[in-house]
Design a protein around this nucleic acid. Sequence first.
DNA 1: AGAATAAATCGTAAAATTACGATATACGAT
DNA 2: ATCGTATATCGTAATTTTACGATTTATTCT
Lengths: 110, 110
Amino acid sequence: MAITKAQLFNKRQIRAAEFAKAIAHPARIAILQILATSNACYCGDITEELPLAQSTVSQHLKALKSAGIIKGEIEGVRTCYCFDEENLAEFKTVMEAMIKEFSIPNPTCC
Amino acid sequence: MAITKAQLFNKRQIRAAEFAKAIAHPARIAILQILATSNACYCGDITEELPLAQSTVSQHLKALKSAGIIKGEIEGVRTCYCFDEENLAEFKTVMEAMIKEFSIPNPTCC
DNA sequence: AGAATAAATCGTAAAATTACGATATACGAT
DNA sequence: ATCGTATATCGTAATTTTACGATTTATTCT
């Protein structure tokens, strides 16, 4: 983009956007669902359940980890991915706060 | 991107990702907060409250409208933007369902 | 009809995202 | 030490996003 003005928004807005961006792709939602509902937690197992290449899944996992939604525990040659419960709580708080905020009916307009 | 495989994910995943993408930018979250808490609802008024050009705000409004989170009612020379309550309910449902889904502790791993 | 105003769209450029295959890295087993 | 396996990273290409100013469109007012 021509100019980046993200720094002109507040931290809450930036964090919420970050979380939203993390789940702004069907593949990442699918990965999170796999983590939540199946017992797959290795990149390889997750890749098997998805129509994507291993490198692509690894990339998506990295994105989820960067946002803090998941964490990766190295287990020898592989990495076990699972939800980062602490940050997941923050995710919930941020998202629910936003949902709540948007639900305030504005009486002055429309 | 080289190949698009979005069609290989299910509708719920795609819809959730769409909603998430809509709020995946601080400016769009700020716009929604302005809509929710101030009585600004015209592109011009919203632009005044943000460090962005009118055309940029208009673009963000379009993205929010495309996702269905807001709607625009033409009022003569201007357009009054407000939440699309029906879709906002869907947004809430989808997001809350996802949050809930991710909260199921996986007993088999990590 | 013409001027003023608000919003949308166009054109453009920079950056980010997404995907893949190929390669590198890291670890366990032999 | 070497081999095999799992994951991460690199390199690349296509697409999308983001931003801006300039222009167009649409409507109201004079």
